[in-house]
Nucleic acid binder design. Structure first.
Length: 567
RNA sequence: UGGGGUGUAGCCAAGUAGGUAAGGCAACUGGUUUUGGUCCAGUCAUCCGAGGGUUCAAAUCCUUCCACCCCAGCCA
């Protein structure tokens, strides 16, 4: 069995454009016809986030592409941090993202007895010993990065004594920390991981699955390679920080002479304007900087789901970011692109005015109501249409009117004509101001000849704006989300600051919008595009008489960019 | 000289048995358009962290140097 990963295989015509992992798997399959069996191995001590999405898409994606399998395995070897609450959420999130483990749901804790037997085997072959140094002493004996460590005085214990001690550890004869089981490797190894790593520790704590059956628990390094081996994993993919652990992964499997999977490391995901570390996400939740793990601003899968991000968009994102070994920070704009790309093709359009200002059509009869049939999707007739009422008083977006139009502005302004989407051309004749100087009403006339939004004389209007009939409008709460952090890299802390100092104070703004009546038909979880505004999803906070929408993403706004540039 | 990993455009990322820099996002130009959305066409690295060398030819080979990341949990 190979101890270390083979040299990167050279690319062939078959592997052109593939990432290094797919290239390697392709080579492995050509060489030994091996099937592919991967696993996604989260520790159930927190909620899954975008970083996990990368791993899920990689592991399950590989299995699908190479006609193999991917297991879901909970790495639950630390009873004090883990809980079933997390396994439930992880199961849900993986499934939502499209990962199908086909019933192969495993737990490291299922292997506790086997792992224990492997540990005894290691003791018998002289590869492991019980150490009775304290944690502090062990640390001191380990040496430093530049200086070799020293051997523990207990390192030379006989096999019999080690076996006896280890069995008594299991039997509960000792308190936490009294002894540990260590691999007997090399205290002067340059790779610190190899300086007699701890394999088992005593922990008198109930485990969320095994209860109080055990009081000794195996460490990650001992558990992971053997779990992979027991499950017949072919390619064990993990993030780069585990690369130093690979030597130990290989050492244990060799020492036990069991089936030997290959560990392959890739760079973890970083995204601008957010944080992707479990530790920081916990702080955000526990410090009440957000409203829980599924706050739509969180980069957690449940947060993104509630935000309205489709699983398809996330999968697309994961394939677009690629897999490599270089540290990288992906632009948030790529995620937004993936979201818009999917939503543009899959979301019905509807009109809603976020910041309303009243328009009165002075030449439109009072009390009259006209009804327009509008397509739900301009490019896809399959979405059908809905009826939209039109009347004398409307709401339009404050942004769509200027007393003084800047150049290139082709929306409503005194004397200007615009098209009300799918309805009529209107021309602004007058503006009524309130006592404080703000605009209270815009008076317009409409051209009856332009019903439907085009004129028989063929004259063109540059602007088309959305609108809602005031009398028929449905008030809805709209939650506008923005980046959680105000800076691209909140992790780059300096001068006594923490990432919390970079929180964006405007990451959530709640407003009341006026929506067209058809919006009342939306059910929780339904996605819509508010035309010219963005994509939204109806939130679970909605009640029968109170509708809440979360903004998933804005539409691209070229005009805003142009106007900003001209300032 | 602890060990390991990585450096290709603003951000990702192919290309590495040497043959003259894919693709995507962003940005920018123009066209279409009853969403300033979408869509379409186009522009965007004389250069691959830096220097030196080998060669007819180097991002790819050799060499020196620089920068960044990871490792001293009885966490994973």
């Amino acid at each position: 069995m190979n101890d270390t990963a083979p040299k990167e295989p050279t690319a062939t015509d078959d592997t052109l454009g593939m990432d290094f992992i797919r290239t390697r798997i392709t080579a492995d399959m050509a060489a030994r016809g091996a099937h592919v069996h991967t696993r996604f191995p989260p520790e159930p001590n927190g909620y899954l986030h975008l970083g996990h999405a990368k791993s899920i898409c990689l592991n399950f994606g590989l299995a699908k592409e190479f006609q193999g399998q991917c297991n879901l395995r909970f790495d639950d070897t630390n009873p004090e941090k883990e809980d079933t609450e997390y396994v439930d959420s992880i199961r849900e999130d993986v499934h939502w993202l499209g990962g199908d483990w086909e019933g192969r749901e495993f737990y490291a804790s299922d292997y506790f007895e086997k792992l224990y037997q492997f540990a005894e085997q290691l003791i018998r072959s002289g590869h492991a010993y019980v150490d009775s140094l304290s944690a502090d002493e062990i640390r001191a004996y380990r040496g430093t990065l530049k200086e070799a460590g020293r051997e523990s005085p207990y390192r030379a214990r006989s096999v019999e004594e080690n076996l006896d001690l280890f069995r008594r550890m299991r039997a509960g004869e000792f308190k936490d920390g009294e002894h540990v089981l260590r691999a007997k490797i090399d205290m002067s190894a340059a790779n610190v991981v190899m300086r007699d790593p701890t394999l088992y520790r005593i922990r008198h704590a109930p485990h969320h699955r095994t209860g109080d059956t055990w009081c000794v628990y195996p460490m990650y390094d001992f558990t992971h390679c053997l779990s992979d081996s027991l499950e017949g994993i072919t390619h064990s993919l993990c993030t780069l920080e585990f690369i130093n652990n690979r030597e130990l992964y290989d050492w244990i499997l060799n020492a036990l002479d069991v089936y030997h999977p290959q560990q392959i490391e890739f760079a973890r995901l970083n995204l601008t304007y957010t944080v992707l570390s479990k530790r920081k996400l916990i702080q955000l939740v526990e410090g009440n900087y957000v409203h829980g793990w599924d706050d739509p601003r969180m980069p957690t899968l449940c947060g993104l789901r509630r935000r309205g991000v489709p699983a398809e968009a996330l999968r697309d994102f994961c394939t677009r970011i690629g897999i490599a070994r270089a540290d990288s920070t992906v632009d948030y704009s790529l995620l937004e692109f993936c979201i818009r790309e999917y939503l543009n093709a899959h979301t019905p359009r509807v009109m809603s005015v976020l910041n309303p200002v009243k328009v009165v059509i002075t030449n439109y009869p009072e009390g009259q109501v006209d009804t327009f049939d509008m397509p739900y999707h301009p490019e896809d007739p399959a979405y059908g249409s809905r009826k939209v009422p039109f009347s004398r008083e409307l709401y339009i977006e404050q942004d769509d009117f200027r007393l003084e139009a800047p150049k290139k502005y082709h929306r409503l302004a005194p004397g200007a004509e615009v098209r009300l989407r799918y309805a009529y051309y209107i021309t602004c004749q007058d503006v009524v101001k309130a006592a404080d100087g703000s605009i209270s009403e815009i008076h317009c006339t409409y051209d009856p000849e332009t019903r439907g939004g085009s004129s028989p004389d063929g004259r063109k209007v540059k602007g088309t704006i959305h609108w809602v009939s005031a009398a028929h409008a449905l008030p809805v709460e709209v939650r506008l989300y923005d980046h959680l952090f105000a800076v691209e890299n909140p992790n780059a802390t300096g001068a006594g600051k923490t990432f919390l100092d970079y929180l964006n104070p405007d990451s959530l703004r709640s407003i009341t919008a006026q929506a067209e009546p058809a919006v009342a038909d939306c059910k929780t979880g339904d996605r819509v595009q508010f035309e010219r505004v963005g994509y939204f999803i109806k939130d679970a906070d909605s009640h029968p008489n109170h509708t809440v929408f979360n903004r998933t993403a804005t539409l691209k706004d070229t005009w805003a960019k142009v106007e900003k540039r001209n300032l």
